[in-house]
Amino acid sequence: MTLDAAMISTLSGWLDATDIDGLELSGPQGSLRLVRGKIASQPLAHPQAQGASVVTAQSVGVFLDRCPLASEPAATVGDQVAAGALIGCLRVGPLLLPVRAPSDGVVAERLQNPGQSVGFGAPLFRLEALLPGEAS
């Protein structure tokens, strides 16, 4: 996808029609960040720069520790999780974006309270690698 002026205008229009505060797009040609109410131009932090053991927010949103209908958290401290497992959600209006474990590990710490609004790149969980012999 190429980001031309028309596309940016379309995206801005959609953003304006929602209650979300910002939107990031990145592709081979570069990155775009749209923020409600201001003009912003800054390089985007690369998510991997945060370190492999910290799971960061890949979007702005409200952090949730479970899907809204679930009675139990998706993952609690001490849980062993497989790569790709859903461990939380980011709510953007009615939309839920996944927070997934980037690798096999144990949930060592939850770094945000459920219901907390977070920005792009905010740390959400700390995962520890499995010790040898722990894998089940």
Partner: peptide, 20 residues
Amino acid sequence: AWLGQVRRLVGLRRLQERAA
């Protein structure tokens, strides 16, 4: 309006995924 908002946000998400 709720369905419209869902449609817009899912559409935005789709654009984001395509761009990534």
